[in-house]
Simulated assay, not measured.
Amino acid sequence: MTTPRDLLIAAIDMAASRPLERGNLSLALAGAEVIDLLSAEAIRLEGDQIVPSHPPAMADRLLDEATSSLVLQAPYESLEDWLWRRGRGLSRAYLDALEAEGQLTQQRRFRWMPFRATQMVLVDSPARREAADRWASQEPILAALAVAVGIRDKPIGDFPGVTDDAVATVLAAVDDALRDLAFQRQRRALDKAAFDNIWRGE
């Protein structure tokens, strides 16, 4: 399994108790892809720039898509730009992949779920068990991403257990992007409230 898939599985399992915004998850999934590409030595970071190496064939289709979408020549893409570009609709792509592989089934919806009109339920599979084991072990990278999107409580300290500087850089970029997204949502909400007040004559 991959870090993005493990994060998505954890998010689905936690959705009933900790619903989250799909946009938040998409940004975190894009960050998780960068972390896996770093691990596979498909890329390296020079400052905040993503520099492609000689990537091996990735075993995961979506990671292959991520590799093929890299900017191959200087000036390379920044982490921030990658998160916003690659993250657009990425949670939907990963959900579709899990469903196509038979790892998600649709059930009649009895309460609100954050992903679809119908309730998506994970089947018992090796992938789900592997993700659950990684979650239970509080593996540092998955735990940090889970904290970022709000499905795990924040521990004391910055990314405890993460010793790789490049990975810490990615996690910090994800946090910054999520804060920016929250600011944009707040600003839109304030603008809408102000517009509504004008129409009400307030």
Rank of each mutant, 00 (worst) to 15 (best):
F110D: 10
V162N: 09
I156S: 15
Q138P: 00
R109E: 07
S91E: 11
I141W: 00
A136M: 08
V149E: 04
A146S: 15
V162I: 14
A144Q: 02
L98Q: 08
A131P: 05
A166D: 14
V162C: 15
L122T: 04
G157L: 11
A136E: 11
L90W: 00
A166E: 11
R85M: 05
K154M: 08
V167L: 01
A93F: 01
D133L: 14
L122K: 06
R88Q: 14
A97E: 15
T163N: 08
R116E: 12
T105N: 12
R152F: 05
P126Y: 07
D124R: 07
F110Y: 12
L95S: 03
R108L: 15
F110C: 02
E99P: 01
L104A: 06
L95C: 09
A166C: 04
D96K: 11
Q103K: 13
R111T: 10
A117L: 14
D153G: 07
V149W: 04
G157H: 08
A117M: 13
P140R: 08
R92H: 11
G157D: 06
S137I: 00
W112A: 13
E101A: 15
F110S: 09
D133H: 12
V123C: 06
I141D: 05
E101M: 12
A131H: 08
A97D: 15
R134Y: 02
G157V: 05
E101S: 14
I151M: 04
Q103Y: 14
M113R: 13
A93G: 00
L142V: 05
T163R: 10
R111K: 12
L145H: 03
R85C: 02
A100P: 03
R129L: 12
W112T: 11
A131K: 05
E130Y: 07
V162Y: 06
Y94D: 03
A97N: 09
D124L: 07
A166P: 00
P114D: 01
A100C: 07
P160G: 10
S125C: 07
E99M: 12
P114G: 01
L142E: 03
Q106F: 05
Q138V: 03
P155N: 07
M120N: 07
D165S: 14
G89V: 05
S137C: 02
A146H: 01
V147F: 01
A148N: 12
G87L: 01
R86H: 10
A143R: 13
D153E: 12
G157F: 09
G89S: 09
